[in-house]
Design a protein around this nucleic acid. Structure first.
Length: 846
RNA sequence: GGACGCUUAGCUCAGUUGGUUAGAGCACCUGCCUUACAAGCAGGGGGUCGUAGGUUCGAGUCCUACAGUGUCCACCA
């Protein structure tokens, strides 16, 4: 027997271990079931899971559990991401706290420290997966830096190099001076900052005239190798070919004509610093200008900055401006806001920096993706569909991807150098004097291969053949560019197919007032706190059914609480059923009464709708469908009706049958509590609900006539209660039914057995009716005003509705153009309303 | 500058191809400890669906413009 109150802590204890030990999570690549595979978005080993993970993972577990129950051979492949820059930053900090410097410590020992970190945090993450009830196949767990993935990564690098898709080049990249590594465009976050336009005097050689050069970054002037004006700019174009004197440095640099200079912007004169600005770099290439790097990797000034050498870029700017002012070369400082790139990971201002790095050539890769997206058999289907545009847009504008990182924690680049020679290969080259590239690859380079590398590629494993391409990927819109896009082009290039058929995109979790959850705001919620307070089942159900697909979710703890109440309701309904069906040996759905047919019809229709919406990933719709079926139909009505015939085998059978189905339909959302109750059922086909069969729509259990008859009786019951409540009627009212209809159920539900009369009484009376049932209530007068007011408002509403319908039906346009069934429905409604009105107006309230 | 969302009850959100009187949870009001559940039961109040046009027999739903709000991308010398 169940306790009278749902206790999530007790319910959620130990179940996960049992499932896991029984091997329910394991895929079976030899079974004759159809395969269905999801790869987990590998969480960074940097930390613990947040609410966004809980959201993302719950969605996946729902899909996987659903498919597993539907008879698929499901594989949900788990794993974690080494998160090169993020983890390295954490480990560097940890060592620093112990007074250890990364470089003194050495590469080998540093990597050991990273592995220790990984083991520690990996354990925490796995424990949290368990708390959430995620049915991942631990026997296939992978890590983006494990040996197998290293083989995959190395092979891709070498193949791409040989195909010309990877190259090494000296370009302006985004440099993180804190982590001291290159970054990709996606790892740079642009933020508006209050800055200034510094107007500087660049004196024209041999004259006393000057050009007003406006810059936001005066400290880069040491790297200036030209000043550009637009060739069509009448103000300046005759100066092209002349020289200006670079302030402070006092050397001559040329005035060049280049379209990059926009006459409308600033003063129309641009200083050109090819080593510190991507646009200037291109100008420099066009005009063959020297590239002078003026900073060290940590963003302090280098020897090219003269006396400012060694200063930070900020300090240098400050000092330089003082000196410029002293020399009369600072014209003005014009405040302005402009957006400045910051490192996604360390938060520091990114320095555009000339540097030799490895790149993936994007144009042909991107083009293939765009072509595939035009073919419905090859494309990745986004849910919601609009996110396909994000992917396409990124492909259209994609710049070559900088993949080398000046870090240690990651896949070391399989390139070796000897003097000017480069060797790229899977193994180190023969001969002496070759030195391997010190750098590692962007973490996303390895996660881009995740959907097939985890299945064993480059080996042609059974798993790879069976589960790839995978079926569904679930992730947040914020990593479409980082990850989804890259998996797509890598898979299409390397495997020739999309990595997954569907890509389900969900929104962000925000706090109650709509702000992003962040450490600095302190508004984050630990999912484990929610699990402890309300249970994983409540949390999962709330997160996955609260909002429509793809939209942000404002987290509200009150809603988790109310989900707990819902589960408690299910618990108690189950308790009632279990109390009464203990002796049930066999489910026999015969000798069905109207109310049995009614609930079975509702149940079957719920199955049909649920499957439809599960298949389209509309979990919020599934949630509300199930809620109203369980709460309103099953609990509020059927259970109440069943109480009158609880001894009957039929009633017991129906209760058991429908409850079993309810538990199964709910199982993907709330695995723990459904398992707990399932275990208590007297009749069950499997040892665990996890591996039981998902309900299938059975048309033979839909009884439309009985369904609508009971619907009508319920309407009557509702109307009766309404009238009784609004008129403050006491229990000793009397009621007279009209006609020969069978009102047994109504009489029982409303407990009217002792209130029946068969002729009118000379007291206050009130008519109550549904479409098919009519009755008159006789009652003692209590308050006239209230009941009269109610009656009047009902009459007004009815009159308005009748008028509306009469007008509509008098309109030939409507009658001829609207579908026949709609018109017919209006006719019927109109008739009913007229009857009701007649009843109401002739009823006297004495 | 470009793209994409959102605007529906006091709050948070649903509303599938246009078709009954626009729904739910929470909050609120009234009455109930009815033997599954008082973290419950029964009932109720509350919305001219951002604004203005348009298409249509019919618009929360489709089209146009505008307003507010959010996100992403690009540019920013």
């Amino acid at each position: 027997m169940l306790d009278s109150k749902y206790d999530h802590l007790k319910v959620e204890e130990n179940k996960y271990e049992v499932w896991k030990e029984n091997g329910y999570f394991k895929a079976d690549n030899k079974s004759n079931k159809s395969p269905f595979c999801i790869v987990i978005p590998p969480p960074n080993v940097t930390g613990i899971l947040h609410l966004g993970h809980a959201f993302d993972l719950s969605l996946q577990d729902i899909i996987i559990r659903y498919k597993r129950m539907q008879g698929y051979d499901t594989l949900w492949l788990p794993g974690m991401d080494h998160a090169a820059i993020a983890t390295e930053a954490k480990v560097v900090k940890r060592l620093k706290d112990k007074g250890i410097d990364k470089y003194e410590y050495g590469r080998e020992k540093f990597l050991e420290a990273c592995w220790d970190w990984t083991k520690e945090h990996g354990g925490i993450i796995r424990e949290q997966w368990g708390k959430l009830g995620l049915s991942v196949d631990y026997s296939r767990e992978r890590f983006t830096l494990d040996e197998g993935l290293n083989k995959a990564v190395t092979k891709v690098f070498v193949d791409f190099y040989n195909k010309g898709l990877i190259y090494r080049g000296e370009k302006i990249i985004n440099w993180d001076p804190e982590a001291q590594t290159a970054l990709s465009n996606e790892e740079v976050i642009y933020e508006d900052v209050e800055g200034a336009f510094y107007h500087l005097k660049y004196i024209i050689s041999g004259t006393s005239d000057y050009l007003d050069v406006a810059t936001t970054r005066p400290e880069t002037l040491f790297g200036d190798t030209a000043v550009a004006v637009n060739p069509n700019d009448e103000r300046y174009n005759k100066l092209i070919g002349k020289n200006v004197i670079l302030p402070i440095v006092n050397k001559e640099i040329p005035i060049i004509g280049d379209v990059h200079a926009d006459p409308e912007f600033g003063t129309g004169v641009v200083k050109i610093t090819p080593a510190h600005d991507p646009n200037d770099f291109e100008v420099g290439q066009r005009h063959n200008l020297e590239r002078i790097v003026v900073m060290n990797p940590d963003a302090t000034m280098n020897e090219n900055a003269g006396k400012y050498q060694g200063m930070t870029r900020e300090k240098c700017r400050e000092e330089l401006l003082k000196d410029l002012e002293k020399e009369g070369l600072l014209i003005s400082i014009e405040p302005m806001t402009h957006s400045v790139g910051h490192s996604e990971r360390t938060g520091v201002m990114v320095e555009p920096y000339l540097s030799k790095q490895w790149f993936v050539k994007m144009d042909s890769l991107a083009k293939r993706v765009l072509d595939f997206q035009k073919d419905k058999d090859k494309k990745v289907n986004f849910v919601p569909e609009r996110y396909e545009k994000h992917l396409n847009h990124w492909m259209e504008i994609s710049h070559d991807w900088c993949i080398s990182r000046q870090l240690w924690w990651g896949h070391q680049i399989p390139a070796w150098y000897k003097g000017d020679e480069i060797y790229v290969g899977i193994d180190a080259p023969q001969g002496k004097g070759w030195v391997q590239d010190e750098d590692v690859l962007d973490t996303w380079f390895s996660s881009a291969l995740w959907p097939f590398s985890t299945l064993g590629w480059p080996e042609n494993t059974e798993d790879l053949k069976r589960y790839f391409p995978t079926n569904t990927l679930v992730t947040g819109f914020d990593i479409i560019f980082f990850w989804v896009a890259r998996m797509v082009f890598q898979s299409e290039e390397i495997q020739g197919v999309r990595p997954f058929k569907d890509c389900v995109i969900h929104g962000l979790i925000r706090d109650k007032i709509g702000r992003k959850m962040s450490k600095s705001l302190g508004n984050g919620i630990d999912p484990m706190d929610m699990v402890n307070t309300y249970g994983a089942d409540a949390l999962r159900h709330y997160l996955t059914t609260d909002v429509a697909a793809g939209t942000d979710l404002r987290f509200d703890e009150e809603k988790v609480k109310s989900t707990w109440n819902y589960i408690n309701k299910i618990w108690n309904a189950s308790r009632f059923v279990l109390m009464n069906i203990e002796d049930l040996k066999e489910i026999k759905l015969d000798k069905l009464k109207n109310e049995d047919k009614w609930i079975l019809s509702k149940y079957e229709k719920t199955i049909k709708n649920t499957i439809k919406h599960m298949d389209s990933y509309d979990f919020n719709i599934v949630g509300s469908e199930l809620y109203s079926f369980i709460y309103d139909d099953f609990c509020s009505n059927y259970i109440e009706m069943a109480k009158f015939s609880i001894e009957s085998e039929t009633t017991k059978s129906v209760l058991c049958f429908v409850l079993t189905g309810i538990l199964k339909l709910l199982h993907p959302f709330m695995p723990f509590v459904t398992e707990e109750i399932y275990q208590k059922l007297p009749i069950k086909e499997e040892e665990s609900i996890m591996i039981s069969k998902y309900p299938i729509f059975d048309k033979s259990l839909v009884f439309d006539i009985e369904e609508s008859a009971v619907d009508d009786e319920i309407e009557f019951i509702k109307n009766f209660r309404n009238i009784k409540a609004e008129n403050n009627m006491t229990k000793d009212l009397k009621i007279m039914f009209e006609g020969n209809t069978d009102n047994d159920l109504i009489i029982k539900m409303l407990k009217l057995k002792d209130n029946l009369v068969n002729k009118p009484l000379e007291v206050n009376q009130y008519k109550v009716f549904s479409s098919k049932v009519k009755a008159t209530i006789f009652f003692k007068k209590v308050e006239d005003a209230a009941s009269n007011a109610l009656k009047q408002s009902q009459i007004i509403a009815l009159k308005a509705s009748i008028e509306r319908r009469e007008k509509l039906l008098a309109n030939d346009n409507y009658v001829s153009k609207a579908p026949a069934n709609i018109v017919e429905m209006d006719r019927q409604k109109l008739e009913e309303e007229k009857k009701k009105l007649a009843e109401l107006t002739k009823t006297e309230i004495l």
